[in-house]
Amino acid sequence: MLSEILETLKNHQGEELNDVHDKVHDKVHDKVHDKYPDVSDSAWKVLDYLAENTCASAIMAAEALGMSERMVRKHIATLKSAGILSRMGSNKNGKWVVGLA
């Protein structure tokens, strides 16, 4: 996948950095979503939130995303079972770790 990203960057040399970033992001985003078809769009939103807020709780994610806590916990369980999300440390002091398998 990294070689494809490098090739995309080479093909778009001279373009504005933000344009290149958007194109690469979209390409990676599509490949990741294709690899995990059982993960819903809502779960990806939870993942994005937890990737940016690694110390957040399910309650905090639910409030920020406008979802119920139960739904956020369900999405977290889906992401964990897919090997996309894990928790390092305790529930109280730990952090979320995003790692695509």
Rank of each mutant, 00 (worst) to 15 (best):
N11C: 09
H29D: 15
A51V: 02
K92C: 00
W44A: 08
G83M: 03
D34E: 15
A56W: 06
H29P: 00
K27N: 12
H21C: 09
S57E: 03
N11M: 11
D34C: 01
E52Q: 14
V39N: 05
G14I: 07
E4Q: 15
L47C: 07
S40Y: 04
K10N: 13
M71P: 00
V46R: 01
D26T: 12
K74W: 04
L47Q: 03
E4S: 11
M71F: 04
T8Q: 13
S68V: 03
C55G: 12
V97Y: 01
K74G: 02
D30L: 06
L2V: 11
L79K: 04
E7A: 13
K10V: 13
T8S: 14
A43V: 02
V24P: 13
N18G: 02
Y49V: 09
M88Y: 06
V97R: 08
G99P: 00
N53P: 07
G89L: 05
D34S: 14
K23N: 02
W44I: 09
S81F: 00
L47N: 02
H12V: 01
K74Y: 06
V97N: 09
Y36P: 08
I59C: 01
E15I: 03
H25L: 14
V98S: 06
T54V: 08
M67V: 00
L50E: 03
G89P: 10
H33N: 08
G89W: 04
E16D: 14
V24H: 12
D26V: 05
A56P: 11
H29C: 08
M88A: 11
K35Y: 10
E52V: 02
K35I: 03
V39F: 01
E7G: 02
V32C: 10
K45S: 12
K31A: 08
D19E: 14
V72E: 02
D34T: 13
R87V: 02
M88G: 01
L65Y: 05
H33Y: 11
N18S: 14
K95T: 07
M60V: 05
V72K: 02
E16T: 03
S90K: 07
V32E: 10
A82W: 00
G14K: 09
L2N: 12
E69F: 00
D30T: 13
I76T: 04
I84G: 03
L79I: 12
R87G: 02
H25K: 15
L100Y: 12
I59T: 14
